[in-house]
Amino acid sequence: MNAETACALTARDYKSDLKPVWCPGCGDFSILMAITMAMADVGRPPEEVAVISGIGCSSRVPAYTSCYGFHGVHGRALPLATGLKLSRPDLLVIAAGGDGDGYSIGGNHFMHACRRNVDLTYIVMDNQVYGMTKGQPSPTTPPEWDSALVPGGTGLSPFHPLVIALAAGANFVARTFSGDAKGTAQTIVEAINHPGFSLIEILSPCVTFRPEEREWAKQVHPASVDATEDRARAARRVLTDDGFNTGILYRGNRAPYQPAFKPDDAAKVDFEAEFLP
């Protein structure tokens, strides 16, 4: 990090002029703040950062930053981010979105992004519901959650993103809570600085369709143990915790996947030419 640039940039420099249209009280506001604080701390100027998302309330986040961004197709944040990072390794690439986007329609991409271990940071704003489409259950919704759209609940076991990330090969795994914006910002910084694929699962209340999630503020607690480098131990911990432990769970040491970049690659030059005026 260039010390002069780092001093000069503040969180405000990473905010766009667009005003978020999230519901007041939504956890995503604090996560946006955490992302901009983390960016200022890392110190890469906005034009060297790309924020890539799919579709959902949470996936609106690229538009609210001043970085380059791409608001892609539902569930496809990770393939877009992967392609970008492989062709432009000089950029800092952040993928972001919701539990529906990342674990449901994007579930397959999620597993393989962990497996490929490209140097990306993936921020999932998990509210255990599809917010944008008005409250359908997502893969992380508890089985007993009863609502007009799922009378009696789904009865289905929730997907366990952290365990799946560990099993599939992610190199950094953490859980934070949106209400702890500064702690979340620090974790994002650590994730960015850690090589390879980093998952940060952020519990982010959807106050409109899951108003009971406002109570998460009282339920979250920092994990009583430090991050481990042992994948199996991390998986055991997270399988047996109450789902509200926060902190960095796992720091691995797999080498990231980054094939050598060949600027004279003919296919790429042809492809780029299609987009140039």
Partner: peptide, 18 residues
């Protein structure tokens, strides 16, 4: 420390009909 500075109302306290 890691908390919000004292004079900032937490985002989570909001409601659209407040």
């Amino acid at each position: 420390g890691n908390l919000e500075s004292p004079e900032a109302i937490p985002f989570g306290e909001m409601h659209y009909l407040i």
